[in-house]
Write a protein that binds this DNA or RNA. Structure first.
Lengths: 168, 168
DNA sequence: ATCGACCGATGGCAAAATGCAAGCAGTTTT
DNA sequence: AAAACTGCTTGCATTTTGCCATCGGTCGAT
């Protein structure tokens, strides 16, 4: 469990866990795409992750404490992956990464609308979203009638997709 | 120059550039460690980067527009690596990564004091630091008498190191 | 002018990670 | 009984990483 580290620098230790091409993609899909099962993560992957890589990353993220795995009561073979507080704490990081990508890289419009909303919403919105994730993944209670941040993000995304389709 | 991308998602595109174990380490050392030459990056590396990996990452970061390379007038073989605005824009990301690492990972005290100060300083301090980096790497003017953020971070770091040494 | 230290890298090679396609045993649906 | 779906695993080729030695050129001191 306790491997040797290259250094005790916070940046380095973070990179030792998240510094590869797939780990954050997997967490992103669970977090923003609400994918909770292996097949969902595999088949709906925008980037086309391979099944062995996905299996490996899920295992590593479980091991590092970013995910938990539980049985799906509706299907004996289904596993449900959930985010831990550690992973939910990555929301601000995702927001900043999205903002940086939008500013400096050739992002596509429909895939960056959510990043834009998250960026514009700022820390207050991030907190709301994190509470929503805690409710969904950790079973925490949410005040009744709370509007869904993810719902808003998804709605905006679908609007852009629909608009693009129409104009095409 | 223009490679094919896995997707146009901002998170993904960011990972395609920074999603490995070394790229952000190199930028960190240039940014916070004021290392501007190949040898400095190689020999003062906390994590022990190999020379071929360093050469490769510098090349890639130049190619992607995060660094620039210029000749050192004092030595015909010396190269000076500078951050671009694109890289300076990563300061908030570093701040968040540092904060996340400090919260969730077994960081060492002396290597995380700077992350702590950066975190506590918040966006206002980050902006000051970014202006300082623009002065150092892009030749921008800074109001005279501006106190150095990096100086403060380094001082705090050295204090902790000295205190540790004394207690040991 | 000559020597040793220093400069930014390269090259060879083994080990590890990645990527792709096929397949597996068990479960559920039709 | 058949087909579709479940979370993976296996085999294999390619790519990346990591370690170590080394290179041709430059510099300062003697």
């Amino acid at each position: 469990m306790d491997e040797s580290h290259r250094s005790g620098c916070p940046i380095n230790l973070t990179l030792e866990i998240l510094g590869d091409r797939w780990s954050l993609i997997v967490i992103r899909d669970i977090m923003f795409g609400s994918r909770r099962h292996f097949r969902e993560l595999l088949q709906n992957s925008q980037e086309g992750i391979a099944s062995n890589i996905l299996a490996d990353r899920l295992r590593r993220l479980l091991d590092k404490g970013l995910l938990t795995r539980s049985d799906d009561p509706t299907h004996k073979q289904k596993a449900i992956y959930s985010l831990t507080e550690m992973a939910i704490d990555l929301v601000p990081l995702f927001a900043h990464m999205g903002a940086w990508g939008r500013k400096h890289l050739p992002v596509s419009e429909e895939l960056s609308i959510r990043a834009e909303l998250l960026e514009d919403g700022g820390p207050a919105l991030w907190e709301d979203f994190m509470d929503e994730l805690r409710a969904k993944h950790l079973g925490k209670q949410l005040p009744p009638g709370t509007p869904s941040v993810l719902g808003r993000l998804t709605e905006a995304y679908l609007d852009v997709v629909a608009a693009k389709k129409k104009s095409a």
